[in-house]
Amino acid sequence: MSDIRAYEQPGEAGFGDYVQLLKPRVMSLVVFTALVGLLVAPVSVHPVIAFASILFIALGAGASGALNMWWDADIDAVMRRTKSRPVPAGKVAAGEALAVGLALSGIAVVMLGLAANWLAAGLLAFTIFFYAVVYSMWLKRSTPQNIVIGGAAGAFPPMIGWACATGGISVESLLMFALIFMWTPPHFWALALFMKDDYSNAGVPMLTVTHGRKATRTHILVYTILLVPVAVGAAFTSIGGPIYLAASIALNGWFLIGAWRIWRRDEAMAEADGYATEKSVFRFSLSYLFLHFGAFLAEAALRPYGMGGW
């Protein structure tokens, strides 16, 4: 009987497994940065439209996560960090992940166009395409610069949020994009330094594998130096202000010191203390981004009281 055969499929997915396909942790960063992009814009948005816009941006990001899990199921199964994802764990079929990804992409883009505007929807569609096709299918397995260029996908959300409010693109939204874009490489390379064998086992050409760990340390320092003017420069636009400037100088100083310390170390020193510096810089880099966008938000929140901005 078919029912008895059904009992023999222990891997059948629950609702939570489909939610996991959407990479909820990545989504939370997307929600936060898109919300900041929308709230700091000089145009006020009706709360219902703002809520719907952020929801559909998050859904689009989740859809691209599902497409990524469909395409990368083979390497996810090899890496310790990703082998419990729904597709490699056998809970959701790869084809199902593809279907969920495509359907949610369409829903998210069309609904964002209807709720906000078609520029925002177009940017969201491009972001999904960029993450699923340009990053996952093309760059990730072919070049060690994969996360440098692929980082653009994660950098679009505040720009989409800004476009939802203003219907356009401006230097402010481009700087928010550039902040995440330049932050991504040192963030991920710090991770790659202490997630030692994962990427090489999976055959993903991370910089640590192709150019060695010393070169990766140098790259972290160089990209952090390039990040500083972008992050601090945003202070002098309409979304910046003294609070942001003070926070940015402190955070960038700290990040630079961390990158410098990573650069000075060699593998023997890192092995000796269990990659303590690399891990602490990676953790700090998360706060770095969160606090920068928090400072943008603080400037916008204080502006009605005559305190935020210049």
């Binding site: 009992y7 059948e12 997915a13 629950g14 609702f15 489909y18």
Partner: peptide, 16 residues
Amino acid sequence: PPEHEIHRRRFGRNIG
């Protein structure tokens, strides 16, 4: 027939 764990999972999915 007695309810199997899989039915509960499907019910949860339907509710979701």
